[in-house]
Design a protein around this nucleic acid. Sequence first.
DNA 1: AAAAGCCCCTGGATGC
DNA 2: TGCATCCAGGGGCTTT
Length: 271
Amino acid sequence: MPELPEVEVTRLSFADRIAGAQIESVCIGKPLRWPLNCQPEDLQGLRVLGVRRRGKYLLLDLERGLLLLHLGMSGSLSYGLHLPAAGVHDHFELRTNQGSLRLNDPRRFGAVVYATAEQDAVAQKLLDKLGMEPLGEGFDLQLFQAGLARRQAPIKQVLLAGDLVVGVGNIYASEALFLAGIRPTTRASRLSRPRAARLHQAIRDVLARAVAKGGSTLRDFSNANGDMGHFQLEAMVYGRAGQACKVCESTVRLIRQGQRSTFFCPTCQKP
DNA sequence: AAAAGCCCCTGGATGC
DNA sequence: TGCATCCAGGGGCTTT
């Protein structure tokens, strides 16, 4: 499910309302990807200072330490004063005096992990390997070009790896490569600097537009208010195998790369 | 170091 | 209707 746009849209949908809240209790459901790394009672009484995002992680800053939330493939958050009764796929709930934050995640690839600080071992293990943030100032073109130059893997898989640039998942990798006119199978190191620059811009553009559209809702994504996204309607290639390219009318193709689907237009996207 | 495969888990769609 | 198979927005770990 959630790539950078969906995570950011989720953050924006509840960050203001949870800021300053005091944690009253914490409920745990079935195990997620990793253990919470503290006792639920340890969080009682702490204030939530704010919510940041790093890649596909949400970072809840607490007055002591922070919670790292990851939505995995099927996770979504809901936030409100009166949430409906918890269901079988609700696996974490933070109850505060300003509302409850609840994680629903059928596949349980998501995670909620407590770290005492961003520098502690638990947080660093998860955050240290993350690449540049594509939105904002830190997405340096020269570093991006240099990073691509030393990778022999297909460009699609370099984007998905997340150690060069974060947040680009399976939907937006296909979409960004379409916008840049680059075939997903092209080896990253073979891209000319102008083409790499075009991809750099395409990544920024597609992610920013997706955030503006509330993200993509393929089956069940919604933000913490339950609102669905609309960007999937604007996808140029993702999910459109066999259909006509919206630009040139060639048939959009589907291939497998690293056990994931990749969509591209054989005419608009050059090797 | 980098790349490729496997695996975690549940549910929906499709095919027989 | 029932059952098997495949597929899904991620990414850590192990092996080459």
